[in-house]
Simulated scan of single mutants.
Amino acid sequence: MNKELLSAIEYLSKEKNVSPDVIYDSLEAVLITAYKKEPGANSNAVVALNRNTGDYRIMAPKTVVETVEDKETQISLQLARNIDNGYDIDDVVNVDVTPKNFGRIAAQAAKQVMIQRLREAERSIVYDEFSNRTDDIITGIIQRIEQKNIYIDLGKAEAVLPVSEQIPTETYTVGQRIKCYVVEVRKTTKGAQILLSRTHPGLLKRLFELEVPEIYDGVVELKSVAREPGRRSKIAVYSRDENVDSVGACVGQKGMRVQNIVTELQNEKIDIVKWDEDPAVYIANALSPAQVISVTVDENDKSSSVVVPDYQLSLAIGKAGQNARLAAKLTNWKIDIKSETQAASANNETGTKDVIDDLDIMGDAVVSAELAEENMKS
Results as ranks from 00 to 15, higher is better:
residue 6 L to H: 03
residue 7 S to A: 13
residue 9 I to L: 13
residue 9 I to E: 11
residue 10 E to P: 03
residue 13 S to E: 05
residue 16 K to Y: 07
residue 18 V to G: 12
residue 23 I to L: 15
residue 25 D to G: 11
residue 28 E to N: 15
residue 28 E to S: 15
residue 30 V to P: 00
residue 33 T to R: 07
residue 36 K to R: 15
residue 40 G to Q: 05
residue 49 L to T: 02
residue 49 L to D: 03
residue 53 T to H: 05
residue 58 I to N: 14
residue 60 A to M: 07
residue 63 T to H: 06
residue 63 T to P: 02
residue 65 V to E: 04
residue 68 V to N: 08
residue 68 V to F: 05
residue 69 E to S: 14
residue 72 E to W: 01
residue 74 Q to V: 08
residue 78 Q to R: 09
residue 80 A to Y: 06
residue 82 N to E: 13
residue 89 I to F: 07
residue 91 D to A: 12
residue 96 D to G: 02
residue 98 T to L: 10
residue 101 N to K: 14
residue 102 F to E: 13
residue 107 A to Y: 06
residue 107 A to I: 09
residue 112 Q to R: 12
residue 113 V to W: 09
residue 115 I to A: 15
residue 116 Q to M: 07
residue 118 L to Q: 01
residue 122 E to Q: 08
residue 125 I to F: 08
residue 133 R to L: 05
residue 136 D to Y: 11
residue 138 I to V: 12
residue 138 I to R: 12
residue 143 Q to W: 08
residue 145 I to S: 14
residue 146 E to F: 08
residue 149 N to V: 00
residue 149 N to I: 01
residue 151 Y to R: 14
residue 152 I to M: 07
residue 154 L to I: 01
residue 154 L to C: 13
residue 156 K to M: 10
residue 158 E to Q: 15
residue 159 A to N: 10
residue 160 V to C: 13
residue 163 V to P: 11
residue 166 Q to D: 06
residue 167 I to P: 02
residue 175 G to A: 11
residue 190 K to T: 02
residue 195 L to T: 02
residue 195 L to I: 02
residue 198 R to T: 02
residue 201 P to G: 09
residue 207 L to Q: 15
residue 210 L to D: 12
residue 215 I to Q: 10
residue 216 Y to C: 10
residue 217 D to Q: 11
residue 218 G to H: 00
residue 225 V to Q: 11
residue 225 V to I: 03
residue 229 P to T: 10
residue 236 A to W: 03
residue 239 S to N: 14
residue 246 S to K: 09
residue 250 C to P: 00
residue 252 G to N: 01
residue 253 Q to S: 15
residue 254 K to M: 07
residue 255 G to I: 04
residue 257 R to W: 03
residue 266 Q to I: 01
residue 268 E to A: 11
residue 271 D to C: 08
residue 272 I to C: 09
residue 274 K to L: 15
residue 277 E to T: 02
residue 277 E to W: 05
residue 286 A to E: 00
residue 294 S to Y: 04
residue 304 S to P: 00
residue 314 S to G: 11
residue 314 S to P: 01
residue 317 I to P: 01
residue 321 G to H: 04
residue 321 G to V: 04
residue 325 R to I: 00
residue 336 D to Q: 05
residue 338 K to T: 06
residue 341 T to A: 12
residue 343 A to C: 06
residue 344 A to E: 12
residue 345 S to K: 10
residue 346 A to L: 03
residue 347 N to D: 10
residue 356 I to F: 06
residue 359 L to W: 04
residue 362 M to D: 09
residue 362 M to Y: 06
residue 367 V to T: 08
residue 367 V to R: 09
residue 372 A to K: 03
residue 376 M to P: 00
